[in-house]
């Protein structure tokens, strides 16, 4: 009965990431899309927050948003998604929580 959380806001201007990390359960998934993918930048404050509790959840990011922003994800354990994979993930988890 795990939840897929979708984050889309910049970690430097919104509280989405901070709040989500407080309420994420073991086995949940987090999908970063839009400006939320900025949290994948190695060495950023958001990346530190994100990776500090990464044993709890599975981390995904929308590939087009990562590519558009020229973010190097080779150092981070993240699964990049195209839209078909994004849809499949929403089926796999019991519910989807879109943080808007």
């Amino acid at each position: 009965m795990t939840t897929l959380h979708i984050l889309n806001a910049s970690p430097s201007t919104a509280t989405q990431l901070k709040s989500c990390l407080r309420v994420v359960s073991i086995g949940d998934g987090i999908v970063l899309c839009g400006e939320a993918v900025q949290a994948l930048r190695p060495g950023s404050a958001a990346a530190e927050q994100l990776l500090a509790c990464q044993q709890t959840y599975h981390l995904y990011a929308l590939q087009e948003d990562v590519q558009a922003r020229a973010i190097d994800t080779t150092m981070v354990s993240v699964t990049l998604l195209d839209y078909p994979a994004f849809v499949a993930l929403c089926v796999d988890y019991a519910r989807v929580n879109s943080w808007t």
Binding site: N8, G34, L62, Y83, P84, F86, V87, A88, C90, T100
Partner: peptide, 29 residues
């Protein structure tokens, strides 16, 4: 699926919603 769209058409999330919806149907859902 139910898909809800909450931002105006020039918001990136509304484009993302469309691409997602297209993939939902393409997958046979």
């Amino acid at each position: 699926f139910v898909i809800s769209v909450l931002s105006s058409s020039h918001a990136p999330s509304t484009r993302r919603a469309l691409r997602f919806a297209q993939a939902v149907l393409a997958a046979g859902h």
